[in-house]
């Protein structure tokens, strides 16, 4: 059994207006940073996974995201996985 660390990024689906992202984009522009656009606000979830291998760790993460960590009606997610534990 190995331990993996997963970093999961959750954002609103592209089709849904991200009003927090828009508000922050306006703030960036008022700070004279017009080159920064398309701000998306989301959540970062970090967790440890005990699994036989990377493939089964990935499938456990996908199940957790589909059942609880995200709502597919309004959110998309991506994740990265690496072996070991983040201090």
């Amino acid at each position: 059994m190995k331990t993996y660390t997963a970093h999961i990024a959750v954002t609103l689906r592209r089709a849904i207006l991200d009003v927090q992202g828009k508000a922050i984009e306006h703030a960036l522009h008022s700070l004279h940073m017009p080159g920064l656009t398309n701000v998306r606000i989301g959540k970062h979830i970090e967790l440890h996974v005990q699994a036989q291998d990377e493939e089964s760790a990935s499938s456990m993460i996908r199940e957790a995201c589909d059942k609880l960590l995200t709502n597919p009606v309004m959110e998309d997610y991506t994740f990265t996985l690496h072996e070991g534990v983040t201090a």
């Binding site: 609103l12 849904i16 009003v19 508000a23 709502n71 009606v73």
Partner: peptide
């Protein structure tokens, strides 16, 4: 009810925040 799937759709942050 939306989270449980008994109703369709979702309720998200108000447009004016």
């Amino acid at each position: 009810l939306c989270e449980s799937g008994l109703l369709p759709g979702a309720l998200i942050r108000n447009e004016n925040l």
